[in-house]
């Protein structure tokens, strides 16, 4: 609801700006033809006000595009790690828990992996185990900071895990996107263990860069990372990213709940 309202306000402002300018020009012409100075004055004034209203609406996504460029070096480092360690599986999102207080992204080395939470903590980078299927690297997801920001503005969940329904999650995701003014129109579908999230993104430049290098699935961008982490935290389940696809600013995220988790 929040996002839809956020988008509407921006588009309403733009439309009102354009309408004010058109109305101003109409008054100006009308005033000139009828030789009425007041109408000419009002026309000029409305054109100026409409123009300034339009100027004020064209400031969105700038901060996000700057942030996405700032993150380039970190993404480059992760890309090198992924290529160097030949990681081919999709990332595993671990919700905040006892060992990992803010949640993490686990990149398993092998395709038939197992998640063992008892050998992971906030200071672990390489997950070492006697069982090769449990090995991998543990990294902070890019959207973790945004998730913290959401918590700061939105507060913690007041309901217990059992009482939460999907509308709470939808509202949370929409609020996150509207708070950062980066997108909207979030939809969440749950089919058994499969979760499908779709949303519209305003600035897809980082998506394109990550998709070119096939990194989306293994190390999602801050927006997808924050959304995925929010879902994992909401369900309190370990999730595997099956697919992240962006087409015409519409992003599709496919997740799968991992049931077989050692704690």
């Amino acid at each position: 609801m929040f996002m839809k309202r956020g988008i509407d306000i921006q588009s309403i402002k733009r439309v009102s700006g354009i309408l004010l300018m058109i109305f101003g020009v109409a008054l100006l012409i009308n005033g000139y033809l009828k030789d009425m100075v007041y109408l000419i004055n009002l026309g000029v004034g409305l054109v100026v006000v409409g123009w300034i209203l339009l100027i004020f609406t064209f400031e969105r996504y700038i901060e996000y595009s700057i942030v996405s460029h700032v993150l380039d070096d970190y993404i480059e480092l992760v890309k090198r790690l992924i290529k160097g360690l030949n990681i081919k599986t999709g990332a595993v999102i671990i919700p905040p828990g006892e060992n990992l207080k803010h949640g993490c992204i686990f990149l398993p080395f092998h395709e038939n992996f197992k998640v063992n939470l008892s050998i992971m903590d906030d200071y672990t980078l390489f997950v070492n185990s006697d069982n090769r299927d449990e090995m991998g690297i543990l990294l902070p997801p890019l959207g973790r900071g945004l998730r913290r920001l959401l918590k700061k503005y939105r507060g913690e969940y007041s309901t217990s895990l059992e009482d939460r329904d999907i509308n709470h999650l939808l509202e949370d995701l929409e609020y996150l996107l509207s708070l950062l003014a980066i997108g909207g129109d979030v939809k969440v579908e749950m089919r058994g263990d499969e979760i499908i999230i779709t949303y519209k993104i305003g600035d897809n430049s980082l998506c394109k860069r990550l998709q070119e290098e096939d990194l989306c699935r293994r190390y999602p961008c801050p927006v997808c990372g924050a959304l995925v982490l929010t879902v994992a935290e909401f369900l309190n389940k370990v999730l595997k990213i099956e697919e992240i696809k962006e087409e015409n600013r519409k992003v599709l995220i496919k997740l799968r709940i991992i049931r077989d988790v050692l704690e």
């Binding site: 100075v37 007041y38 004055n41 009002l42 000029v44 004034g45 100026v48 006000v49 300034i52």
Partner: peptide, 23 residues
């Protein structure tokens, strides 16, 4: 900014009978 500009536009356009002065 917008409120003050809009109110001054309305105020001046009603009171001032000359386009150049208004501008």
């Amino acid at each position: 900014f917008l409120l003050m500009l809009t109110s001054s536009v309305i105020f001046f356009s009603v009171l001032v009978g000359d386009v150049e002065l208004f501008f």
